[in-house]
Write a protein that binds this DNA or RNA. Structure first.
Length: 819
RNA sequence: GCCGCUGUGGUGAAAUUGGUAUACACGCCAGACUUAAAAUCUUGUGGUAGCAAUACCGUGUGGGUUCGAUUCCCGCCAGCGGCACCA
């Protein structure tokens, strides 16, 4: 088979028949929404990771279509982002143009690799018709009080010249470029995702994510529960609040520590400590997050001069400042119980603070507090704590929280690892945040009729040292009128983070036809949403969401949040509380040296090159055969050659007999039925490696087949090798496109074998086998008698006593003997 | 430290979820075709012993449950991924 000729032929055919892969909004048929993460269209084209996940998803989509589902399998472009902006700056071109080129390239490559996307639903996050919706969503967040402007210390990447979300900082370095991140204080838009922490947590129960993903989400949200305790400040009528998950140890509290960035630090600092505290704050501000965590053994800190009172014991506790306390965790102030917390212990030791044990081992043994804190919770009893004495730590925690609440000294509360979401980016190539600042009216959202706020075409997009967005230098963009008073006002010049466009793209695919609807005077976006209930109800939730592990926390959480928010807003169908039903995480392909592919290592495999050399079908089949879909596996040219051999053999096998007038032999019929069953089951669970193995086995063991069974084989092959299947389907005279043919169903009569081979074991070790007719399966005594009469078995049981005879119906016989 | 995952031939990996361990593929050995090579095809291929039938051992490791464990339970070892001074 000359794959180049065949590919060209069918590519043309598919191009002329896009309806093959259209999802139908109107037809009454069971639906399947199969979503694969849309790519960032970089200048280097589709890489092998894309090819892998797209092929896996495509095989599933084709399989489901053939099974009679109305399949929605869309594709689009997550096209805002720094690489394009940087590239545009370097080449002095417009990001819009560069994006257009890149998406054209990606689309072409995808079509060549035969992905059966519904191209009628293509979306692009940089299309103003798309991002006006992204902007509209932001306005809804603002209107509900979930988006607010705040002076915030941010993670600043000096190389990208951009503020980064906490999530984008890895090991104190910029996730993209690897430069050391600095701290800067900038006024930023922040989205209160924390308000949805509990809903994001409980909503997980309505999904069927794989455990790994579910756990990742739970850990990321990181809910703990405890109590916020107010400690009165000495010589003041104020209090200071600390969050604690271990109030059961609170009788042992001896000091309080406040984070250096905390707004109340100076208020607590007495005159004589002012200079030392100020010095300390300055020093710790200079430290990057990296340094702060690197130096974790050394618990530095200074005394503020103030004290507060532990009302449980009446003890005066000194208030210290230390950068081991994280401002954004809890209240940013920590109560120190050195006897039962490693960090508190280290701090107390260093600064000579009293250590009071209040938890002891249950078994009465002595703990040497000179060596370290006692951290055990399970086998511990409370002591030295008046009314808590003798209780287990768990019981004491409940009791003390109730007590503190009664006394109004504290309040039961929860804390989350999840942080509010910094939404501002000081860059050009992103969605403009649709807000206006008026001196008189403050921050106001852009009126719906004025959406989208389109990115102006600019000459220079370089980010600047002052950290301001390039848009701030464009007068015509900056200046505007206040939507309330009509007076002079200024536009927000920050743009949105990359996540914004991908937060709701799976919904956009459903209502793609309405995305461009004109907003008339009386129309609103909400109206269009309401008008789209039919489409949303039709397709959502996403049945299978295929993506990479790297998006299991952030993207998945952000987009779930946006969905839950819009759901509460009432614009989404009531019966669909979560956007994604299942999540499949695809594996990673390493270079042939078992290392991550990278240009510097020279181990990059380009899918197009492989397709040029061996054909698309070989590439696709090989990707599916490499190993389990979720696994990490290395590229191996030898295995690829094996797959090529198989495809050649498969083609010849059909080509040699499709016009012979033979009938299938019974044994071949049996193999065909088993293969149908096995391949279908494997495809259902993304077990493509074993699906291919079963097809290989079939070809290896089968003799001549009749026409209808050859057609079945072609169909089974169609999702993975779409070109060859289409070619063979035409040869054999099948109707239309093989991809619209019906998925075969195994014939039960061939699956029912009339003879079963049973292994016979003695003491669990297989020593022989018997063949029994089907109607014998239930006859226990006869089967066991047969087993015992086997010559080979006799050798093992003669002269011994059979103490047990086990017959697992239709499975095996086991005889337990004793000397 | 916390959470999650993985460990099976020379290699990538299977095993219908407790019932013949190593399917399928690569690699390797031998053979056929060829002047030769490549390609293709055929046979063999977990280890040890044996000419052989066969026997014993064998799924990281040590225990346990069971007639029977790659599969379930407990401990350990190694590796991978994520989070981490979160109070």
């Amino acid at each position: 088979m000359d794959f180049k000729v065949v590919e060209a032929k069918w590519q043309k055919f598919w191009e002329e028949h896009p309806e093959l892969y259209w999802a139908d909004d109107n037809i009454v048929k069971k639906k399947k929404y199969i979503l694969v993460e849309f790519p960032y269209p970089s200048g280097s084209g589709l890489h092998v990771g894309h090819a892998f996940s797209f092929t896996g998803s495509d095989v599933y989509a084709r399989f489901k279509r053939m099974q009679g589902y109305n399949v929605l399998f869309p594709m689009g472009w997550d096209a805002f982002g720094l690489p394009t902006e940087n590239y545009a700056i370097k080449t002095k071109r417009k990001p819009q143009e560069v994006t257009k080129e890149n998406t054209d390239m990606f689309r072409g490559q995808m079509k060549r690799l035969a992905y059966s996307f519904d191209w009628g639903r293509e979306i692009n996050t940089t299309d103003p018709n798309y991002y006006r919706w992204t902007q509209w969503i932001f306005i809804q967040l603002f209107n509900k009080g979930l988006a607010y402007k705040k002076e915030m210390p941010i993670n600043w990447c000096p190389s990208c010249k951009i503020g980064l979300a906490n999530e984008e900082v890895v090991d104190g370095k910029c996730e993209r470029c690897g430069s050391e991140v600095e701290r800067r204080t900038i006024s930023q838009w922040v989205v209160k995702i924390t308000e949805y922490a509990d809903k994001l947590l409980s909503g997980l129960q309505k999904t069927d994510f794989i455990d790994k993903v579910r756990q990742a989400q739970i850990n990321w949200i990181g809910k703990t529960s405890g109590v916020t305790i107010d400690y009165p400040i000495v010589d003041s009528n104020k209090t200071i609040s600390c969050y604690s998950t271990r109030p059961d140890t609170n009788f042992g509290a001896t000091f309080v520590v406040i984070a250096p960035e905390h707004e109340r630090v100076m208020e607590l600092t007495t005159e004589e400590n002012k200079t030392t505290v100020e010095d300390y704050i300055k020093k710790s501000r200079k430290k990057s997050d990296m340094e702060r965590t690197e130096l974790q053994k050394e618990k530095t800190g200074v005394f503020t001069g103030s004290y507060c009172v532990n009302r449980l014991t009446g003890k005066k506790m000194p208030i210290w400042v230390s950068d081991f306390v994280v401002l954004t965790a809890g209240t940013g102030v920590v109560v120190g119980v050195p006897a039962h917390d490693q960090r508190d212990y280290d701090f107390a030791k260093k600064h000579n603070i009293e250590i009071i044990p209040v938890i002891v081992p249950k078994d009465g043994s002595n703990w040497d507090f000179g060596k370290g804190p006692y951290l055990n919770i399970d086998d511990a009893l409370v002591t030295n704590s008046t009314f808590l004495n003798g209780m287990t730590a768990v019981k004491a925690k409940e009791k003390i929280i109730n007590y503190l609440e009664e006394k109004k000294w504290g309040e039961r509360s929860s804390n989350y690892h999840l942080r509010d979401w910094i939404f501002s980016r000081q860059h050009y190539w992103g969605e403009p945040i649709p807000m206006i600042y008026c001196k008189k009216d403050g921050w106001q959202p852009v009126l719906e009729k004025d959406l989208p706020i389109v990115l102006p075409e600019v000459e220079a997009y370089e980010p600047s040292e002052d950290g301001k967005s390039p848009l701030s230098k464009i007068e015509s963009f900056l200046k505007c009128k206040c939507p309330i008073c009509g007076g002079d006002a200024q536009r927000e010049t920050d743009t949105m983070p990359n996540w914004a466009g991908s937060d709701w793209y799976y919904m956009a695919y459903c209502l793609v036809k309405k995305l461009k609807t004109n907003i008339e005077a009386n129309d609103t976006f909400t109206d269009i949403f309401s008008d789209s209930q039919k489409e949303l109800k039709k397709w959502c939730p996403v049945d299978v969401y295929v993506g990479g592990d790297e998006h299991n926390t952030l993207h998945l959480l952000y987009s779930r949040f946006i969905y839950l928010f819009l759901y509460d807003l009432g614009v989404l169908p009531k019966e669909i509380p979560e956007p994604y039903y299942t999540r499949i995480s695809h594996g990673v392909i390493l270079g042939s040296d078992n290392q991550r592919m990278s240009k510097s290592k020279g181990n990059v495999i380009v899918p197009e090159t492989v397709a040029d050399k061996f054909g698309v079908d070989v590439l696709r089949l090989y990707l599916m055969f490499m190993g389990p879909f979720e696994g990490t596996m290395a590229w191996n040219e030898n295995t690829l050659m094996g797959v090529k051999r198989f495809l050649d053999r498969f083609y010849l096998y059909i080509d040699n007999q499709y016009n012979l007038n033979t009938d299938s032999s019974i044994s071949s019929k049996v193999i065909i039925s088993k293969t149908i069953l096995g391949v279908s089951r494997d495809m259902e669970s993304f077990g493509y490696n074993t699906a291919v193995a079963k097809l290989m086995e079939a070809i290896n063991t089968m003799d001549k087949l009749g026409r209808s069974d050859l057609m079945i084989l072609i169909k089974l092959m169609a999702p993975m090798a779409p070109y060859m299947a289409e070619e063979l389907w035409e040869k054999i005279g099948g109707d239309g496109s093989v991809h619209q043919s019906e998925w075969p169903v195994a014939e039960l009569k061939y699956l029912r074998e009339d003879e079963v081979t049973l292994p016979v074991a003695v003491n669990g070790k297989v020593r022989g086998e018997i063949k029994i007719k089907n109607d014998m399966i239930q006859k226990i005594d006869e089967v066991i008698a047969m087993a015992k009469s086997l010559e080979k078995i006799k050798e093992w049981i003669d002269g011994k006593t059979i103490i047990r005879e086990i017959y697992v119906s239709g499975k095996m016989v086991n005889l337990v003997v004793k000397e």
